[in-house]
Amino acid sequence: MLSRIAESLYWIGRYVERAEDTARILDVHLQRILADPWTSEDAACRSLLGVMGKPVEDGPFTSGQVIEVLGLDQRSPSSVVGALAAARENARGCREIISSDVWECLNATYHGLARAPRQVESQGVHAFFRWVRDRSAVMAGLTDATMSRDEGWLFLVLGRNIERVDMTARLLRTHERAGGSIPSWLTLLRSSGAWETFLRTYRGALDDRHAAEFLLLDRLFPRSVFAALTVAESCLTDLEPDPGRAGVATDAQRIVGRARTGLEFRGPDDLINDLGPVLAGLEKTCSQVNDAVSRRYFRQTSAVNWSSGALA
């Protein structure tokens, strides 16, 4: 597979996941501000922007601004709208690789984005976020249903899961920073679609430990950090069909494997007590994996600018 295409697929996976997760994070944030009259809006907004890697010098911030920056900014690939547009832009360059269904889904979503500001105005942000999640689900369903499990698919799923690790870590950090009151864990689990599973698993024992443990370590819930790392690891393994005899073959595999075992073999209590550094470490892991994957599979995918010279 062409390096450039592999890179595009990887980023389609990342951007779609990013759009979805950012929508979830924003949703939780807004619900919290609504539900808890004692929360300082400015502080909560600063905290959220900080976790999402946005500058927080100016202020004070309102939720409207946060929605603008993280939700509707067309030029930023880390906003919901921008990420979906970037996903579609990447897909344009590899239409002949992704299935027509996947392309049409991304393209239709992109055309739908033009309506986003109006939708936010008329039906509220929640409806818009709901729509984004639905579109992401359709996209995920179509990739699973219509793409063969070849290299391209592996890169897409790899991207999706790296991004998921990163975003789930950020989601947890917003709560870690906000002090993690019980009602806020509740909205958080709800927004992750994990509420029912969580209840069944912990039989109603709702506390922040269990919630963090669930989102971080649950082996069965697909949005947990552990599950995402495991999928990413298996994608990387499948991309290297011929492993050497000594250990694992690639840098990326080593980095992901180390992160996964770090979660797997450290006790939950230990992890939760040390949550801040653990989450920061996960974000770093993601950026390291990204570099390692780029180095190995996406060599030189940008155009060369030539200079000319002539001599007598």
Binding site: L2, S3, E151
Partner: peptide, 10 residues
């Protein structure tokens, strides 16, 4: 050296 190749993941 006059041989054309495409860059792939492999």
């Amino acid at each position: 050296g006059n041989a054309v190749a495409m860059r792939t993941t492999a």
